[in-house]
């Protein structure tokens, strides 16, 4: 089942950064989602929402070219998935770094720049190489952009979860991608840090003209910054602006069962009655899966 609601808020400038045409994903004979359509323009912020185990992370993997579609098509910056190299930045879902890891945040960000190149992991002193000076300037610039300058020289294991997440966003941004894919970057952060990191991503998206696709568990921290949402349900999907998709009517049609979206006095959305898809115990969210079917922030 598919619902596509034309986006009204922003018109894509030039070629779409990311296009999904009736994309369908099947894993081990089970259809995770189907009929996903999306046109993502420059500097647009999209959230991928849906219940646990519905295949939100798999959508990012398909965009990265790590997992082939069952049918449909994905085009990134005019090319098939997996061919855009540094033009796509990716931040996978993760736990935090080991507290004893004695490597500076700066080095982690620097690995984002050239970590995939062969050679000795230590740059020549900057004064002997213009290229190295440029790299160093870019690393400092991107660390400044995410506001991590104060702790970038500390061992990353000693940084807080929010600090680590900012440094990892800097790492994903260091090669100036045009499309940034984030897999639950707010996961495991406390509420003030969720709000701060969400604001940071929203700001970078606008100021740097970067398109963002973010898998989210809870839409509320990012709701103010979103242009589009892709709401995945077992077998189907709905795409559009948050106002169009996260409504009782759309979600009821998508799930084929009564779903109610409530708006709290401070503008937060709560989805009540979302059916939980069959449990997949490979998903690491098992422990936190409980609240979603019963009444929980949308996402």
């Amino acid at each position: 089942m598919t619902l596509t609601i034309p986006a009204q808020s922003r018109t894509p400038v030039g070629e779409p950064v990311l296009e999904l045409r009736d994309a369908t994903m099947r894993v081990a004979g089970r259809t995770l989602w189907s009929g996903v359509r999306l046109d993502l323009g420059a500097a647009e912020f999209t959230a991928v929402l849906g219940p646990n185990g519905v295949g939100k992370s798999t959508l990012l993997k398909a965009v990265l070219g790590l997992q082939p579609l069952a049918s449909g098509e994905i085009r990134i910056l005019g090319a098939p998935p997996g061919q855009s190299g540094p033009r796509v930045g990716y931040l996978p879902q993760r736990r935090s770094f080991d507290a004893n890891l004695r490597i500076r945040g700066t080095d982690i960000v620097g690995l984002g720049l050239d970590g995939d190149r062969w050679g000795v992991p230590f740059p020549r002193p900057a004064r002997f190489s213009a290229k190295r000076r440029a790299a160093r300037a870019r690393i400092a610039e991107v660390i400044e952009l995410v506001g991590a300058t104060a702790y970038a020289d500390r061992p990353i294991g000693q940084c807080s979860g929010g600090e680590q997440q900012r440094l990892l966003i800097a790492q994903a941004l260091v090669r100036r991608p045009e499309l940034l894919l984030l897999d639950e970057p707010l996961d495991s952060l406390d509420l003030p840090n969720q709000a701060a990191v969400a604001a940071l991503i929203g700001r970078i998206c606008r100021e740097e003209g970067l398109s963002v696709v973010m898998v989210a568990h809870d839409v509320n921290p990012i709701l103010a910054y979103l242009d589009r949402v892709v709401y995945l349900a077992e077998g189907g999907a709905a795409t559009g602006t948050p106002q169009q998709v996260i409504t009782s009517e759309t979600l009821t049609r998508l799930y084929g069962t009564p779903v109610e979206v409530l708006r709290t006095s401070d503008g937060r959305l709560v989805v009540v009655g979302t059916p939980e898809p069959p449990a997949r115990h490979t998903d690491r969210h098992d422990a936190s899966a409980a609240p979603e079917g019963t009444g929980h922030a949308a996402g």
Binding site: R94, L111, D116, R117, G119, A172
Partner: peptide
């Protein structure tokens, strides 16, 4: 070790990102 040092360091501290980046 000198030849593989940098990608090895990347894979050692950040395996998932390194893999996604083609390491």
């Amino acid at each position: 070790l000198a030849a593989i040092g940098r990608p090895l360091l990347f894979a050692s501290v950040d395996e998932a990102v390194a893999r996604a980046r083609g390491v």
